[in-house]
């Protein structure tokens, strides 16, 4: 009897250990999602009272899409541009950290993370100063008469840095690039340098050895980094608010405006759901394309 008892206890132990996490997820994820979904399908009978009636109001979704289509498109294209820039900047940096930095590795890794000690908001405001009309960036361009060139290549718009889509993308890139560097670094650092030697021994020039060995083995890191930069970039509204103009507003600002200024909770909730759905589908397609089974495994 005693043995049977302890066996049963042993079987329950994993659930016991799981329960705090499960409870947390239920309380702070499932319940809010459920509430949000109900609000998204509600109507607001009185414009001045915060009361909602659950009425299966599917039109909230179609209204949100038609009203905020430009912002949705903008959010995803800005986030995509920022993510591509993050890969372009982050991959070589992570590669250097993993294979070439030697004894400076930990110092350089710390430097990647140092910006986190300063508030996200303050760092973005600092960019306003740097990119502004009186700021050092524009001063440099004007001193060296580069504005026509930067206008031509699309870095500036009619001689201005600030309040342009470029500035928003730059802000997103700046703020999220560490989230690209770190996972790529981790996946590169795991690669046995002996594999690169083996590739070279088997008639691959260094560049080909990189393409056939290092790159495929680091793709899980690129995948993780992409998720960590693309999703928060797409939902971000600080950069669009502080570095952009009215024509660069992204979906995050619209949701916050609907919630906080218009108190239009049903449409805000519907828009949030649409945003989540697009991201989820996008991530699954991306995982399929990249052939990463990290997600299913």
């Amino acid at each position: 009897m005693a043995g049977e008892n302890s066996l049963r206890k042993g079987r329950r132990a994993p659930y016991g250990l799981l329960s705090p996490g499960m409870l947390w997820l239920i309380l702070f994820f499932l319940v809010p999602m459920w509430t949000l979904l109900r609000i998204a399908l509600s109507t607001k009978p009185n414009a001045f009272l915060p009361e909602y009636e659950f009425t299966w109001e599917w039109s909230n979704f179609s209204d949100a899409v038609s009203r905020f289509q430009p912002e949705l498109v903008r959010s995803f294209s800005y986030a995509a541009a920022a993510t591509i820039l993050c890969i372009a900047i982050g991959y070589p940096l992570a590669y250097y950290l993993a294979f070439k930095a030697g004894k400076y590795r930990s110092v350089l890794l710390a430097m990647v993370m140092v910006p986190f000690f300063i508030s996200f908001l303050i760092r973005t405001i600092a960019w306003q100063t740097i990119l502004g009309q009186e700021g050092p960036a524009l001063w440099f361009m004007e001193t060296f008469r580069l504005v026509t060139i930067t206008d031509a290549i699309g870095l500036t718009s009619s001689g201005a840095f600030l309040n342009t889509p470029q500035a928003v993308i730059l802000g997103l890139t700046y703020n999220f690039v560490p989230f690209m560097i770190l996972p790529i670094y981790v996946s590169l650092e795991k690669i046995d340098p002996g594999l690169i030697s083996a590739g070279q021994d088997l008639y691959s020039a260094p560049r080909q050895a990189f393409r056939k060995i290092v790159l495929p083995l680091s793709l899980p890191g690129v995948f993780a980094g992409t998720l960590l930069t693309f999703i928060p970039s797409a939902g971000d509204y600080i950069n669009a608010e502080l570095l952009g103009n009215v024509k660069t507003s992204m979906i995050g600002s619209q949701i916050s405006k609907l919630f906080l200024k218009e108190s239009n909770y049903p449409e805000a909730a519907a828009l949030s759901f649409i945003f989540m759905a697009i991201i989820t589908i996008g991530v699954l397609v991306y995982a399929k394309l990249l052939g990463t089974d990290e997600l299913s495994a």
């Binding site: 002996g194 594999l195 030697s197 083996a198 070279q200 021994d201 008639y203 020039a205 260094p206 050895a209």
Partner: peptide, 14 residues
């Protein structure tokens, strides 16, 4: 190494 006609069996196989 990639231009030499010799090949290596590495200690940890690689």
């Amino acid at each position: 190494p990639h231009k030499r006609d010799v090949n290596t069996v590495f200690q940890q196989y690689a």
